[in-house]
């Protein structure tokens, strides 16, 4: 039954997801040939023009990526809410499956969408940034960046990608947790879910900052630099601590969601 639930989740949102991400990839491919490949970063050029055009391009790119990520986030949230707590919930909750199976189906399908979104955005960046001209220009500063990072930019990007993929689980569980919290209220459930999201995010971020502060990582880059550590050493330590915090928070949010889905379902 879990497989069937996942299949219907992927089918219901898949078409628009593929269409939008397909448009993004086409945009990246076109921009690679129309814009990026025509940039001559080594030739003497009007610096102002170059900066303005790069700024404009990366603003458009950032807006596109943000919109795509926001869409994915909203799609996951709406699917969960609509399928389980709106009118469609009357069918979902009368299927011969448990609330926990519903929760896992949504976690798995949500993670698939979010991971796919992350991979497609990463692919878009790769398409744009791997032209010969960019690589040649980068080779001039590669040693300095490698020294600063403690590894090549490729390895660094790969680690960042893995961390982003791992954070998908936390993001998806957090969305579902907040919607579940919203369902505990007798009215204005969507508004309560949004409030729960804002409060949860604030608490997690403040808590993380306090923990980083206690461990001396915030603000502590100067201290680490003085000790002779690379940017990578500093960042990896921050990621490890943040990862542990995220894992603990994700487990706590899952346990709360598990309890609500098992004991507190009320479709009003």
């Amino acid at each position: 039954m879990l497989g069937r639930l996942i299949k219907y989740d992927l089918k219901s949102s898949g078409k628009l997801f593929i269409l939008l991400h397909g448009i993004f990839l086409i945009f990246c491919i076109l921009m690679r040939f129309i814009y990026m490949d025509r940039l001559d970063l080594l030739a003497p050029v009007d610096e102002k023009m170059l900066v303005v055009s790069l700024l404009l391009f990366f603003t458009i790119f950032t807006v596109f990526v943000s919109a795509l990520m926001f869409y994915t986030l909203m799609q996951i949230a709406f699917r969960y809410y609509r399928n389980l707590f709106s009118r469609e919930g009357y069918l979902s909750w009368t299927l011969p499956v448990s609330g926990i199976q519903h929760l896992w189906a949504k976690i798995i399908s949500g993670c698939i969408f979010m991971a796919a979104d992350t991979l497609i955005v990463a692919a878009g960046i790769l398409i744009l940034a791997t032209g010969k001209n960019i690589r040649n220009a980068y080779s001039l500063i590669a040693d300095e960046i490698t020294l600063q990072l403690g590894m090549t930019i490729g390895d660094f990007g790969l680690i960042l990608l893995i961390l982003c993929l791992a954070s998908c689980i936390c993001n998806v569980v957090m969305i579902y947790f907040c919607i579940n919290i919203g369902q505990l209220f007798p009215g204005h459930r969507v508004l309560c879910a949004v409030a729960a999201y804002i409060i949860t995010s604030t608490v997690i971020q403040t808590g993380s900052l306090i923990i980083l502060f206690i461990f001396g990582y915030f603000p502590g880059y100067e201290f680490f630099a003085a000790e002779g550590a690379t940017t990578f050493d500093f960042m990896i330590n921050i990621y490890v601590i943040s990862g542990v915090i995220s894992a603990v928070v994700t487990v706590a949010m899952y346990i709360a969601s598990h309890y609500i889905m098992k004991k507190k379902i009320n479709l009003i």
Binding site: G89, Y90, W93, T94, K264, I265, N266, L267
Partner: peptide, 8 residues
């Protein structure tokens, strides 16, 4: 709804 597990 109670019979269908839609309410607790």
């Amino acid at each position: 709804k109670l019979a269908n597990g839609l309410l607790t």
